[in-house]
Design a protein around this nucleic acid. Structure first.
Lengths: 401, 401
DNA sequence: GATTGTTTGTCAAGACAGTTGACGCAGATC
DNA sequence: GATCTGCGTCAACTGTCTTGACAAACAATC
């Protein structure tokens, strides 16, 4: 309804500036003639505007890529100046803060993580995160003024209405805090706040198993909690109040054990990491870790494979319902448990085929690909900034007014 | 990413034409000065373009609305010519074809239905529908050349990949048919094909319980089958291959009775109309109808209220899972069963509050409002044409070249 | 090595679209 | 009746893009 206006002549020039800049952002380096063809504009106009963009310091010209075997005069390649803007993601997990930077094209620039004791106050965690961000920026030769935006990931759902973080069972450090307001008081750049799982999902969709794939994607994050990321038509979906994607507390057994959430027989009580650990503690002892279990499963340990397979069957049944309802083009299984690979995915696919409807049975189910440790979330944050900053090209032009 | 281009000067004129026309379409009659303010363009430009649009026969000028108590010269009101375009919906249900027309602003113009025996061949149904469409057009003083598009509703899911209608248990008349191709061979206008439930959902969202409401809406259609309509950010969502919204075959009891779909204990086996009828047949006899049951329930019959209440509890539990996952801002309960009102909705809300998570517990759950008999689907079709015809203003300009 | 063909990037002239400022007009207010 | 306010239109001006022409740069061919 609120369609982009045609507007005045000054608007037209600005629109063309934005259009050419966003083509350079999206399609990478291009020469003037190609740019003219893509934009549906004459080469002369491109020349004029390219001159303006170069003058603003947003675009740079690489003298020539000669000897490329093509007829004609060598093309002079235009590209967005990498330092013209940096996007950042900060992902706060239980004990660690990860940070990641990308350039304007979404290429990773730098990433790192620092440990903060789980007992630390949220304010301390926040300061550690911002210190990390400044370190990364310094390392990349940029400052806060080069930041085009920051996305922050925290555990737990975030209410779009109040901005507060809702309760999340492990890691209550952020519960009730208005993260957006707190960060804004310390850092004056465009800001996004999401839960960890959604940021991981964004990273997987753009840089991992979902890159180049369909726009309707279901990301299934299996870790301590069970969260998901929903993409419809290529866009991250948050729900009316920001609560979309909670699948851990779907009840799969109405007579099951009581869950702290108030429901009974929740999926997470059977398929969350604590449940997996508890099931294998009799065999491996109290100190068993998820890493050890995954290793054992990979080496053929029957008990481990059995427990993980059961999780696959259970989650696969839920996945069948999700696919019936949403009919995604791709399912990406992420989270720590996804490193079990086929031991988990095999039974999950079997259950999906068994319980899903015909039209949705062909959906591809793949494991997450990114192996940045848990840094994926931070990378996803930076990517989210690039994807969701309204009119990135416009914002860049605005700064250099 | 594929943002609208700035483009050339000719493009700019066209963009401004489209912009002004879509403002008139969306905001109703406006005078030139107001239009100029809304579009961010000078009054002179509006005058010029308005002249062109009037010349094309798309816009008409109402001499004056004088004596309105306002200072200054009387404004001359511009509005889209009603006859400049008509949108149509045809909804094919088991025994009836409904048709509806709206003008370009979405205002209903005319609607009607004709009965076609359930045993009739799909081609016969199609011809009856097109005859109905021509009748409606003639009654509205238009012809097929005034049609800007038609949306056709059929029972069963439609594959975006093949265009074929999938199997739907009641009413196999369309199974395997490529409805889009068949209609196109008889009628040369832009065409949409959807399942009945989605069209009803569109009507409810724009003209019924959802008008003016949030953009994330879950429409829960309870009839013979159980279908849904999903709206994310105001847009109808179809899924990767068109199969989104199938909720009837969610399994709610893994050990339940076998369902023709291949699964066990499907929701529709407990909450579909046939199940409701079967449950009450011992009390009311073999010839019992859904109308009789609804009447009895409204008059306080315990057995009817009990059975319908059970359906509410069951569907409410499923709804809780859906709301956890999708966090809609509004749930509209439609379908024949929704006419039971609070007898159904009360238990449904109770189950939702009981089994849903905190963030999604506040969602409003309301009954569908439109009481056009089953004509809602046809109206929804016409509305769908208006909403989804890409660049309606552009298309209108294109025709009058 | 010179010639030909092709594509690029730029320049000058022209066409086109929108704005500015001024004017006449139509109603309300004093 | 005089004045004020806002609407719609005309003429002159400004800004933006395009067209057609040209030099530059590279590959292929004679």
């Amino acid at each position: 309804m609120s369609t982009p206006p045609g507007g005045s002549l000054r608007t037209l020039r600005r629109a063309n500036q934005e259009h050419l800049l966003s083509l350079l952002l999206g399609q990478g380096p291009l020469h003037r003639a190609e740019l003219a063809r893509l934009a549906g504009v004459s080469r002369t106009t491109v020349s004029t505007i390219a001159g303006e963009l170069i003058g603003l310091g947003l675009v740079a010209e690489t003298p020539a890529g000669a000897g490329s075997g093509l007829d004609g005069r060598a093309r002079e390649v235009l590209s967005v100046v990498p330092g013209a803007g940096v996007a950042a993601g900060l992902d706060f997990t239980l004990e660690t803060v990860y940070g990641h930077l990308t350039d304007l094209a979404g290429r990773p620039l730098a990433g790192a993580g620092v440990t903060v004791p789980a007992s630390a106050h949220w304010r301390e965690r926040l300061e550690a995160g911002l210190a990390l961000l400044d370190d990364l920026l310094a390392g990349a030769g940029a400052g806060r003024d080069g930041l085009i935006g920051v996305a922050v990931g925290v555990p737990g759902p975030i209410s779009l209405a109040t901005g507060q973080v809702g309760p999340s069972l492990p890691g209550q450090a952020w519960a009730g805090i208005n993260v957006a307001r707190e960060v804004r008081s310390l850092l004056d750049v465009p800001l996004f706040v999401e839960n960890n799982t959604r940021l991981e999902a964004v990273a997987e969709v753009t840089h991992g198993a979902g890159r180049g794939g369909p726009g309707d994607v279901f990301y299934f994050g299996l870790s301590s909690g069970i969260g998901t990321g929903l993409f419809f038509g290529g866009d991250l979906y948050r729900g009316d109040t920001g609560g979309a994607g909670e699948l851990g507390h779907v009840s799969i057994d109405i007579d099951g054990p009581a869950c702290p959430c108030g429901n009974r027989g929740c999926l997470v009580q059977y398929a969350g990491l604590p449940a997996v650990l508890a099931a294998l503690r009799p065999r491996f002892g109290a100190g068993v870790t998820i890493g050890a279990i995954l290793t054992a499963a990979a080496e053929g340990d029957r008990a481990c494979a059995g427990v993980i397979g059961d999780v696959g069957t259970l989650t696969g049944r839920v996945l069948a319902n999700v696919c019936n309802l949403l009919n995604p083009g791709l399912v990406i299984v992420g989270g720590e448990l996804s490193r079990a690979g086929e031991v988990l995915l095999g039974p999950m696919r079997t259950a999906l085929r068994r319980y899903g409807m015909a039209l949705t049975r062909d959906v591809r189910v793949v494991a997450a690909e990114l192996d940045l440790g848990a840094r994926a979330g931070a990378l996803g944050g930076a990517v989210l900034v690039l994807r969701e900053t309204p009119g990135l090209a416009a914002a860049l032009l605005e700064r250099r007014s």
